[in-house]
Computed example of a mutant assay.
Amino acid sequence: MSEDAGQVRLIYSDDVDALATPELGLEAAVAAATVDRSTVATGRVQVNGDVSWSRILSGSISDLDVTGYKEFHRVGKRVRYHIHLYRESTGDALAIVDGRRITSLRTSSTAAAAVRAWAKGRSVRVGLIGSGEESREGLRALRGTVDVTGASVYSPTQANREAFANEMGEALSLSVVAYDSAERVVEDCDVLYVATSSKGDPFLGLAEVGHIPMISAVGATQRIDRELRGDVFTGATVVVDAMDAVLESGDGHEAIDSGWDPSTSLLLGDYLARADQLESERTLFKSIGSVEQDLVLALHLLEAAEREGRGVLVDQIGSLRLMR
């Protein structure tokens, strides 16, 4: 894919920012969701040290002839991310992509794909719980994917939610209102985007959000994380980006403990294929992300970088060894 099989393209953070349009993110999300699952293999390793921790998420997608991994490590508040891409059929290195935005970008793009399929061309008003990077990417992706008529946001810190409303409203030419309670947000939307760092007790149950036809919950990605009570899953069409979304998230476990059957959920690729035939009073998209989404998004960024001449080509440093 690169101009010279002996070179690697370095794609820096400013390249990613320039290339990461909602259209590219959506295209990558759909490609990842609809890839032949039988050609995907994944694995992960996490190492926790006294001073730092690191995590490697590795995957191969034979359907796209790509393999690689996302690596990130943290020391205190300092975190760095990289994605390394290789051609599966040859082992040749393709690119090293700055991964800082990859997680939030692929999460928001995947959610936008689910919302677009649900909306079926309808206009929507978006409510956001959380005002961090995940919510910013989420609103940006939704604005670029469906007809968003307005948005509202709540987070516990007044300065943060007001800054979100002002900055995102100006950036997206959209009316964004900051509310002082989650209750006001859930009263004022038909698509709810929940992206918090909540740990501990869930704070949104069926009594609070049962009237909202489309909920996208992306913040709780580990068993200690809980945003939704288990009853939100019951009776809804539950769409997941990976089966691990309900098996590894805290709110998914609460739903299972409450009697919800995770086998009734739909993988996003299946939902995209069937959304036009499905009618449901409530749809819940639950995401924790997956390495194949990261790799496919990085691959799309690489293809865009090649078209637009972005990034820097450098010689490979991994010399070839032939083994018997």
Rank of each mutant, 00 (worst) to 15 (best):
V238R: 04
I212R: 10
L19I: 10
R100I: 00
E183P: 04
H73C: 04
L247P: 01
S263W: 10
G76S: 03
S175P: 13
E227M: 04
S89F: 08
A217G: 08
A5G: 05
G269T: 05
V153S: 12
G132T: 08
P156S: 15
E3I: 00
T196I: 14
S319N: 14
R9H: 05
A31P: 08
G49L: 05
R307H: 09
A165E: 11
S152G: 15
Y81A: 00
R44T: 01
A20M: 15
A275H: 09
R226K: 08
V218L: 05
T221A: 03
H211T: 13
D294Q: 02
V79R: 00
A119D: 10
L139H: 10
I83M: 02
M243V: 05
V66C: 05
H84W: 00
L172E: 08
E137F: 10
V194G: 12
G235L: 04
L272H: 13
D180W: 09
D315Y: 11
C189S: 10
G59Y: 00
V97A: 00
G230W: 04
S287A: 15
V232P: 05
S198M: 08
A113Y: 04
E162M: 12
V186F: 09
R78K: 03
Y86L: 06
K199S: 12
E254Y: 01
L24D: 15
G259I: 04
H300M: 14
S62L: 09
A165C: 11
A141S: 15
S152Q: 13
A298P: 14
F285N: 13
L206H: 12
G127E: 06
Y179S: 15
G205V: 08
G132N: 09
A5Q: 07
A171S: 12
Y12I: 05
Y271D: 07
S58K: 01
D92K: 02
R9V: 03
V232Y: 04
F203C: 11
A141Y: 09
I215L: 15
D251F: 05
P262I: 09
I56A: 01
L247E: 03
E162D: 15
A304K: 15
E303N: 14
E162T: 13
L284K: 13
V246E: 00
A304W: 14
Q7M: 07
G144P: 13
